[in-house]
């Protein structure tokens, strides 16, 4: 049985429905949820965490329905979209408060706090009031709070927002370690490079529906029609390429070409070679998920 399953889940607020007939299953590992703003990612997380009961369908985490069997939520760590720290409290007190909310016995609470303080490098911030933290620092504290209960399942809503590149990289390494330790991590992000680096699989969501799901490579194969490539050619390819309807923009010793379809790659390479211009390298530019995302946004979704 999967760690997390959603079967025909419909959910929303008041009169408006946000999620429609969602069917998903997640095992341990790293699962990225990708979608534009308003696609339903946060609502999906709230349903998965057990905050928002589904209108229809079944949500199961570790075999329990989190909105009914609230104790299972002790095995779930959640990072909401905002850090949601108590501004007047110090970092230490914020963690201490959450340890109490989690009902961790005091010895275990101290030990877990030491662990997350060490993992997230928070020692220098402990006595600072949360109100004085930068966005990135507050985000680190919020992540530490999500990890405090040593959860089996983590729902992280855009965790690297506000983090500087080094901190974001360190967090990714930490999370990779957790994924290797058999945790299930559900992760939403707008950072396509990050998604491509981390994801065991990616779920594409648009307008409250699952549009597609698979590995980064598989999604790329299915969705990425348009592509920007960097060509290294012996000679000037502009005349040949303009004959084929493409514009080549020089970039130092290379040429940048926007292709309308990935299949065009072999056609232009063949044309250049036939014209006596050896092609030394054809390199795809951008994240493989970038083209997938563009396809999603342009409405070219395929289920």
């Amino acid at each position: 049985m999967s760690t997390i399953t959603l079967e025909s889940v419909t959910a929303g607020y008041g009169q408006s429905l946000v999620l429609h007939e969602i069917n998903l299953a997640f095992d341990s590992g790293f699962h990225v949820i990708l979608g534009s703003n308003g696609a339903g990612k946060t609502t999906l997380f709230r349903v998965g965490v057990g905050i928002l009961p589904p209108r229809a369908g079944i949500v199961s985490v570790l075999g329990y329905e989190p909105h009914r069997d609230s104790e299972v939520k002790r095995l779930i760590g959640y990072l909401p979209h905002r850090p949601s720290l108590s501004a007047a409290l110090s970092v230490r007190d914020n963690l201490e408060f959450w340890g109490q909310v989690l009902r961790l016995p005091s010895a275990q609470r101290r030990s877990r706090m030491d662990q997350v303080i060490s993992d997230l490098e928070l020692s220098d911030l402990l006595s600072k009031p949360a109100a004085s933290l930068s966005r990135g620092q507050a985000q680190r504290v919020a992540i530490a709070r999500a990890l405090l209960g040593a959860p089996q399942v983590l729902f992280l809503d855009e965790p690297t927002t506000g983090l500087d590149p080094l901190a974001a990289r360190s967090l990714r390494e930490l999370l990779k370690g957790l994924a290797r330790a058999d945790k299930t991590i559900i992760y939403s992000t707008h950072n396509l490079y990050e998604a491509a680096e981390l994801a065991d699989d990616v779920t594409l969501i648009a307008a409250g529906r699952v549009v597609d799901r698979g590995s980064v490579e598989a999604l790329h194969q299915r969705h990425a029609r348009a592509q920007r490539v960097c060509l290294t050619v012996e000679g000037d390819p502009r005349t040949i390429l303009s004959g084929l309807g493409y514009e080549a923009v020089p970039d130092r010793e290379q040429w940048i070409v926007d292709l309308s379809d990935r299949a065009e790659r072999s056609r232009i390479v063949a044309a250049l070679v036939q014209a006596g211009l050896p092609v030394l390298e054809v390199r795809e530019l951008g994240s493989p998920l970038e083209a997938v995302y563009e396809d999603l946004e342009s409405g070219g979704q395929r289920v």
Binding site: L102, S118, D119, E121, A150, D164, S170, E173, L174, A181
Partner: peptide, 19 residues
Amino acid sequence: MKTWRAEVNVSELEEHEAF
């Protein structure tokens, strides 16, 4: 900023595993 400890000590995690 210093780099955080990248590798999670799994045995420590399990030791503190609450539930």
